[in-house]
Simulated scan of single mutants.
Amino acid sequence: MRKILIVIDMQNDFIDGSLGTKEAEAIVKGVTDKIKEYKKEDVFATMDTHKDSYLKSQEGKNLPVEHCIEDTNGWELHPDISKLIDPENIFKKPSFGSVDLANKMLEISKKEDIEIELVGLCTDICVVSNALLIKAFLPEVKISVDSNCCAGVTVEKHNAALETLRSCQVEIK
């Protein structure tokens, strides 16, 4: 059984930048430790990726805070994390979930049995979106989320997202 780790949006803007929180800062060490438990080729990551026109997008109109603008410092993965992930295993995504990542997991699952664990930010937006998207692509694959290596927009929203994930048969660690 191949065990895969997916690191969701551990980018500077979500940690200590324009949308950062103390909870997000607090999980960085746990996420780096978790990454080191996996073979490097089994670690994948997503990067929230927006253009300069972000505020004109539907998301930007609902969340009018510029963040993760491509090629800015805020867009980059946290330096402790970026050095642990192969660049070819990083998926840029313009929205909450990455169809390209889900397709990659589907491709791998056709060759071998896999389990998938997710960690990262934000539990209630991109973690839940990617976990459920992958679950839709791979309903028979065991998917889990390490709640100690995730943080939500608020503690309450983090906990609500974990309940939603449980309801959708994603294991919460």
Rank of each mutant, 00 (worst) to 15 (best):
K34A: 07
C168L: 12
E156L: 14
M1Q: 09
K22D: 15
Y38F: 15
H50L: 11
S144E: 11
F44H: 00
K56I: 14
L165G: 02
T46M: 03
I8G: 00
L133E: 01
S57C: 09
I69S: 12
C126V: 05
I81K: 00
L101W: 08
K110E: 14
M105W: 08
D33V: 10
P94G: 14
A131G: 12
T164P: 07
S82Y: 07
F137V: 05
N130T: 02
A24T: 06
I90R: 01
L138R: 04
K104S: 09
K92W: 08
A151E: 13
H158N: 13
D100W: 06
L118A: 09
D48R: 06
D146G: 06
R166V: 05
E41I: 11
F44N: 01
H50R: 02
V145A: 00
K92E: 08
S144L: 02
I108Q: 10
L165R: 05
K56S: 11
C150Q: 08
K51Y: 09
D48V: 01
S167N: 15
G17T: 09
S18E: 10
I69V: 15
V119L: 07
I85E: 04
K34S: 14
I116P: 04
L133H: 00
K135H: 08
K104D: 01
D71V: 10
H158A: 14
N103P: 01
E112R: 05
K83S: 10
M47A: 05
I172H: 04
H78Q: 12
E163T: 11
F91A: 02
T72F: 07
W75L: 03
E37M: 09
N89P: 08
N159V: 09
S109C: 06
K142I: 12
Q169L: 13
A45Y: 00
T123K: 00
V31Q: 02
I69W: 03
Q58R: 07
T46S: 10
L138Q: 05
M1P: 14
P87I: 03
R166P: 00
A161Q: 08
S129Y: 10
G30W: 08
E23K: 13
L19N: 11
G97V: 02
I35M: 10
T32A: 11
A131D: 03
V155G: 03
D33N: 15
K92N: 14
C68W: 04
D71Y: 15
D52K: 14
G30Q: 10
D13G: 09
N103L: 15
V28L: 11
I27W: 06
E117C: 01
K157F: 13
Q11W: 03
V31W: 01
N159R: 13
L63Y: 09
K83A: 03
S95Y: 15
D33T: 11
H67Y: 10
L121F: 13
F96D: 04
D52S: 12
K22N: 15
Q169S: 14
A151H: 07
I134V: 09
G17N: 01
L132I: 00
D113W: 13
P64N: 06
N73I: 11
A131C: 13
L5P: 04
I125D: 00
K22R: 15
F96M: 10
N148Y: 11
I6A: 00
Q58P: 08
H78T: 05
P64G: 07
T123V: 10
E112H: 12
D100L: 11
E23S: 14
G20M: 05
S129P: 07
G17F: 02
